[in-house]
């Protein structure tokens, strides 16, 4: 059995998620073949050198692949899938993986499963576990191969560099007439808010309901000496600036304390904070998936809890 893994990279470094996909392929007894798209063969080789656990690498080099280009990458992954006919195509469930897995599934006539948290091989059937309904349910899908999966970052631990650099085979893909171009890479401005290095974070979620009660959250953060953060709905609703977002499309954090109120714990949020040393979650919904990840939890109303906690913290100083 052979898995073709779309290898994401930035600034000359392969992503952790690519190494995780390699480990996942090995866990079902498959060969791991990486697809590296980069600007030139030298860059492909340098990246392949970081994939010691992989069995082989297919390289596609073109100026348009210097940074991730959804149109070019979809063509390259489609071409590699059609040429090499892997049993399973694997992408991370990242922005690129969201673009590529369903798109290439249609282009190649394969079935796909997204939000994958685990794989088991049962004869010719691949059982894929997916996190659906924002983590409230798990779907178990028996997929006949060949297929495609998009795997949640952090679903398995990455392999270390266990072997030498895999052999690289370059492949020609027609990338003429691309219908999009990347004009600029944007990095966040330094705003003085640094969640990534914060020792303590107090994060509030959608249940905050608006900006009217944000002062209650600010008071908890101040009494705790913590940075205030928000989950994606809080940022998308404009209640807090983007720089305070924790999660998949925000900042990944690993503080000593991650206290959270009104955050359900969607997989996209967990991806950004699940490695925190101590996680304490308050939610009014006893079925909130965050209780599966937190160390301590309490089912209670955040608007009653926040002032009570502020008072305790202030009195205890």
């Amino acid at each position: 059995m052979r898995c073709l893994i779309f290898v994401e990279h930035s600034d000359g470094t392969v992503s952790e998620s690519a190494l995780e996909l390699g480990a996942m392929a090995k866990s079902i007894g498959a060969e791991a073949v990486g697809l590296i798209c980069a600007a030139d063969p030298g860059a492909v080789n340098a990246l392949a050198g970081q994939l010691g656990s992989f069995d082989a690498v297919i390289g596609v080099a073109d100026d348009s692949l210097a940074t991730y280009n959804p149109d070019a990458a979809a063509r390259a992954l489609t071409a590699a899938t059609e040429a090499h006919k892997p049993d399973l195509v694997m992408t991370s469930y990242s922005a690129a993986g969201v673009d590529l897995a369903p798109n290439v599934a249609i282009r190649t006539g394969r079935q796909m499963v997204g939000y994958v948290s685990g794989l088991e091989l049962d004869g010719d059937t691949l059982n894929a576990m997916s996190t659906v309904y924002s983590g409230k349910l798990v779907a178990r899908t028996g997929m006949d191969l060949p297929g495609i999966v998009a795997v949640m970052p952090g679903a398995v631990k990455a392999d270390g560099l266990s072997g030498g650099a895999p052999a690289v085979e370059m492949m020609d893909v027609d990338l003429s007439g691309l219908r999009m171009r990347v004009t600029e890479t944007l990095v966040p401005e330094n705003t003085g808010v640094n969640l990534a290095d914060a020792e303590k974070i107090f994060c509030v979620g959608r249940a905050l309901g608006g900006t009217e009660k944000i002062e209650l959250a600010e008071n908890v953060a101040a009494a705790l000496g913590a940075e205030l953060a928000g989950s994606r709905p809080v940022i998308d609703a404009g209640w807090m600036p983007k720089v305070r977002q924790v999660g998949k499309s925000g900042t990944k954090v690993k503080p000593r304390l991650y206290l959270m109120a009104g955050v359900s714990g969607a997989p996209e949020h967990l991806e950004g904070m699940a490695n925190s040393e101590l996680i304490i979650a308050i939610n009014s919904d006893e079925q909130a998936p965050i209780f599966g990840t937190a160390h301590y939890g309490a089912v209670c109303d955040m608007f009653e809890l926040m002032p009570a906690l502020t008072e305790r913290l202030t009195a205890g100083k």
């Binding site: 999009m180 004009t183 990944k252």
Partner: peptide, 15 residues
């Protein structure tokens, strides 16, 4: 703008 993790994003012009 396509958003990646870590607050990084790319500006893309699409036909």
């Amino acid at each position: 703008q396509q958003e990646y993790s870590g607050g990084i994003s790319a500006r893309i012009e699409v036909q």
